[in-house]
Design a protein around this nucleic acid. Sequence first.
DNA 1: ACCTAGCTTAGATCGCATCTAATTTACGAC
DNA 2: GTCGTAAATTAGATGCGATCTAAGCTAGGT
Lengths: 148, 148
Amino acid sequence: MVRVSTSSRDDLAESLRERGLRVTPQRRAILAAFSAGENGHVTADDVFERAVAGLPELSRATVYNTLGELVRVGLLQRVDGAGPTLYDPNLDRTHHHFRCLRCGSLSDIHLEGEEDVQLAESGYVVERTRVTLEGLCPTCATTGDRRR
Amino acid sequence: MVRVSTSSRDDLAESLRERGLRVTPQRRAILAAFSAGENGHVTADDVFERAVAGLPELSRATVYNTLGELVRVGLLQRVDGAGPTLYDPNLDRTHHHFRCLRCGSLSDIHLEGEEDVQLAESGYVVERTRVTLEGLCPTCATTGDRRR
DNA sequence: ACCTAGCTTAGATCGCATCTAATTTACGAC
DNA sequence: GTCGTAAATTAGATGCGATCTAAGCTAGGT
């Protein structure tokens, strides 16, 4: 096998090792698939397609296993909804999502004033808050109002 | 077939007719399945099990078709997440959800101060807001901290 | 009583995800 | 460098929730 010299800033490998995960070619390829993307919200299948291009032996099971591990250690966030699960590498704790009801796109958004929101009921231990706004994205809002 | 006398307050039938949907025994049974439930967050399969008990010919396809129609006309709300889709008959626009990371239960919650939250980005047309808090529900928070 | 768009049906099919059991590999210990 | 082992990977089977199909039935208007 060709020995690939580690790049001077091998962040990906380091972030895995820090969390007790082994570094494998498969995991490098899977992590690299997120840098390749535009908005960063990708399906497991997107990741597989991108990663298998440079690693033909890759199995889908590995993609699912690895995505699960990466979510577990906090390097990715799952975004569930209708359709396949999306994985979001944006770890900014203050960002939320907007889902367009017309084109189906998912975008990152930010909210102002959310720090003052209180849970009315007591007894719950809140670990995280997921906010998803739904409606029309800027593109769809200006190109007609039909719902798909 | 036995003619069932309509109850004095046949809300279910009326709410269907108002929205241009026909009233059928299947749809009555499906709607009735929501009254039978405790918290009201049920899966399509829960609905099928409850409804088929009194209507043995009922098909799953009808349950899915009908749930889809009821969501479309606004009588139910879909709640997506990991696992099967839940259907929520609580139409209170101000309620949100709490998902317990230990037992998986979904509860209705209310938030205070949310009316002051603003979307930082512009160009979006917001139709609805979904907020899901995650963590430990009151029961799980007081009976140990292990994650399932 | 009739007509027909709307509804229901059993069963096939689909898509996403997970599981299985065998094999390979990363990497710490020596 | 080599060894040992737990961790990771694999192809393919399996599972589950949901949707589709094509044929038959029915609610409700006229």
